[in-house]
Amino acid sequence: MRVLAMLAVLAGCGDNVDPTYEPWILEDLTPAQGLSIRTPEFAVPAGAEIQDCYFFAVPDLAGGADLMIDRVALALNAGSHHMNVFRVKTIVALDPAAGEPVDLGGVSGTVIRGADNIECWKSANWATWPLVSNSQQSTGDPIVDWNLPADVATRLVPGEMLMLQIHYVNGTDQVTPFVGRGGINFYRSADGDTQELGTLFATQQSIRVCRSNPKPSYSGACAMPAGTHTVAAANGHFHSRGERFRMFAWDGLSTTRPADAAMFYDSTNWEEPEMEIDLDVALPEAGGIWWTCDYQWSEPAGGCAAVDARDPQQANDCCYTFGPTVESSEHCNAFVYYYPKVGGDVTCF
């Protein structure tokens, strides 16, 4: 792992810089090494949740050839809820061309800020956009540095549009002590990897965590394409009512939860869910994954009004329902990285 030194001194941010602020540092890659993406720093005021959608085209670094990426480093300042990178496919209402120009560390792009445009918050807009990479770790070690398994690489096509979505929270459930900022290094493979990394994104869309049913559990199963596949990395995602997130290798046939021996991911950390890298989980032939989210309802710090207001059923039962805002909604999302990729990436929702 190549985590560079953390610097205690931040230059160029004015006189009000907290002396304890320690920004992450990723090395700047040459084109021969790969692609570096850096978001600008941005303030996250107290009480705010900020979600911004940055778009950029994969630059041509290899004379028109696809870029094979066998190492990814993702870095986040403390307070981040998530940073996800997707391949832009069908454009519904979140159009990169409608964004404001932005420099992403030497790569030109555009940004659509969620504060200005609600479409950056609406997951239906990226429903058909396959996952490339993600991180939810910003406190402690703010860098996830993943060397993909031997002979495995992520394919990036020059000119293809990617979206880097970053979400910061400075509220009751999660705190951003300094400023928001994210960055990624995609390192080019130099050893002729032959297997392509695939991604699986699965979600439970219609969850409810209610006062009257305070300990609900939701599970789903997601089938892989025919053939055998190996899980190389995974992480789960829910909000502060989430108590336990589990993923299992699943045979694709059974309708009962797999035995604990088949569990490859188990997290009770909603705020900084671990990205489990270096997994080597062989899924059953024609199988897939099973995931389970367990919740414990809790009284919202600001009362139930905001939670009740967004309940599509208007049950007035202080129900947290599916949605992106950490303080007032819930998620149950599984991110899984596997190989070899056969056909397209996998989505289950």
Partner: peptide, 22 residues
């Protein structure tokens, strides 16, 4: 109730979609 609902392909036996929920 806590339920489990699944749709299965009768030809292959594979489960196409599955969910457990209260």
């Amino acid at each position: 109730v806590q339920i489990n609902a699944a749709l299965r392909d009768p030809a292959s036996g594979r489960v196409i979609g599955l969910e457990e929920r209260p």
